[in-house]
């Protein structure tokens, strides 16, 4: 049990006059893998960014709680791990330098044991001192997983987690997600059937364009 919960209350998002979704209500509690699906442009990435506190909803709110106490927005980054194709790490630094800087900016000691374990799991240990600009897109995607998991987050948000990954990469990602979901909440936003197959429940965003509320 992580005693962590995320609750969306009457969430609305519009860009200009374009409605992305409205009256979205859901709650993720303790642990497990939850999915968000929808066609291209349905707002999956927008929703995960709102959950992560990167952008604000037009109306409604997201409440993050640990031990039933609301987490202030300025501390949210300590609880969240985030992976997405549009997340970019510093190409002028090596993988190890990136992770080291991020740990220090986060204000935590770099857990070398955990970093080495993750680098091994994601098959990047041998390339850990190479500049990220020399990485392939699949390697960059795997590095993002290490970036997301290095501080043992309570909420792991994965936007199209298997994009750019080969079968071997996908396998290690699913293995890690399933293992992390035993103690944390994992949210997967994707259209890939194989990504959604590991989810316990799925929010279909298409339903929230017309004010229908449901969380299947």
């Amino acid at each position: 049990m992580s005693n962590y919960s995320v609750e969306a209350v009457e969430l609305n998002k519009t860009f200009g006059r374009r409605l992305i979704f409205k009256n979205l209500n859901f709650e993720f509690e303790d642990k497990g893998i939850f999915g968000i699906s929808g066609a291209n442009g349905s707002g999956k990435s927008t929703l995960v960014k709102i959950i992560a506190g990167v952008i604000s909803p037009t109306q409604g709110k997201i409440i993050h709680k640990e031990d039933h106490k609301e987490i202030p927005p300025e501390n949210l980054h300590n609880y969240i791990g985030f992976v997405s194709p549009y997340l970019v790490l510093y190409e002028e630094f090596s993988a190890y330098e990136n992770l080291s800087y991020f740990a220090r900016i986060r204000g935590v000691e770099l857990n070398k044991e955990k970093i080495d374990y993750l680098l091994n799991e994601f098959l990047l240990f041998d390339r850990r001192n190479d500049f990220v600009k020399a990485y392939s897109s699949g390697m960059k995607q795997r590095l993002k997983f290490i970036f997301a998991l290095m501080h043992s987050p309570k909420l792991i948000i994965l936007d199209e987690p298997t994009s750019n990954l080969d079968d071997k990469g996908k396998e290690s990602v699913y293995k890690i997600i399933e293992s992390e979901s035993k103690t944390s909440i994992a949210v997967i936003a994707s259209n890939e059937k194989s990504d959604l197959a590991i989810c316990e429940s799925i929010i279909e965003l298409e339903k929230f364009k017309n004010n229908k509320m449901n969380h299947s």
């Binding site: 980054h77 969240i80 997340l87 970019v88 991020f102």
Partner: peptide
Amino acid sequence: ERGTSLALHLVAAPSTIFSG
């Protein structure tokens, strides 16, 4: 321009970013 601001969003509070 490089798209790295999201990574900063995810590791630090706004006041830390501004101070740095």
